[in-house]
């Protein structure tokens, strides 16, 4: 569950984001639309505890995440928030499996190879488990990042332009996959995008106009 109250963010006097009230319950999906520069990524980073807002409350699950200390917030994010970025950003020095184990380790969760296999299975990545990530295609890498976001059974999944670098087929496939996986975890799903191809997949949409 995500709850925002009286949120505002800006650099010095230039305000770029202001949201009085927003709530995304478990199992609900929200699409944030907007041109580039409209603050989609900023909002997503605020929701993910990566960027503190100037004012307002951000509640993820039970906690107001900006009331936590920096280290507590890092840990809370690792355990409760699954993040997916436009580019895959996997750790190139590690194998697919180690990338997922790293996510469990850094979140302070138990390292469970069974869970790793299970998630890879769900995303059709089983044969790539022991490959270095550099040996994977762009689409496969993006699926690994989804696997990484899901590995710790997050309560909230945040995806920033997850389809931007994918072709039409893969784009729709990734969006549907995200929706179904979010449902499996009973997680709230927020996707920021300006991708017209996937617009119709979501009922609830938030339009950020660059005012």
């Amino acid at each position: 569950m995500i709850k925002l109250e009286q949120l505002s963010f800006g650099y010095s006097d230039h305000k770029i984001l202001s949201i009085p009230q927003l709530e995304v319950k478990d199992d609900e999906h929200l699409m944030i639309l907007g041109k580039s520069g409209s603050g989609k990524t900023t909002l997503l980073h605020i929701l993910g505890g990566l960027l503190a807002p100037n004012e307002g409350k951000v509640v993820i699950g039970q906690s107001d995440i900006y009331q936590l200390s920096s280290a507590q917030r890092d840990k809370y994010r690792g355990q409760n928030i699954g993040l997916i970025f436009q580019k895959p950003h996997l750790i190139a020095a590690l194998t697919v499996q180690d990338n997922l184990l790293l996510a469990q380790y850094l979140a302070g969760a138990a390292q469970d190879k069974g869970r790793v296999k299970e998630v890879l299975e769900e995303l059709d990545l089983s044969p790539k488990r022991l490959k270095k990530v550099k040996a994977l295609s762009q689409g496969e890498q993006q699926r690994v990042t989804i696997a990484r976001a899901l590995i710790n059974r997050p309560r909230v999944i945040l995806a920033d332009e997850p389809t931007a670098s994918l072709d039409d087929d893969n784009a729709l496939r990734v969006i549907r996959m995200l929706k179904s996986k979010a449902k499996d975890c009973h997680a709230a799903l927020v996707i920021a995008t300006h991708d017209q191809r996937v617009k119709d997949e979501f009922d609830v949409q938030l339009n950020l106009s660059s005012s």
Binding site: G48, D74, G78, L83, L90, L106
Partner: peptide, 9 residues
């Protein structure tokens, strides 16, 4: 990315 996965500073 490691920070976003929960690693502290």
């Amino acid at each position: 990315i490691m920070r976003s996965l929960g690693a502290s500073q």
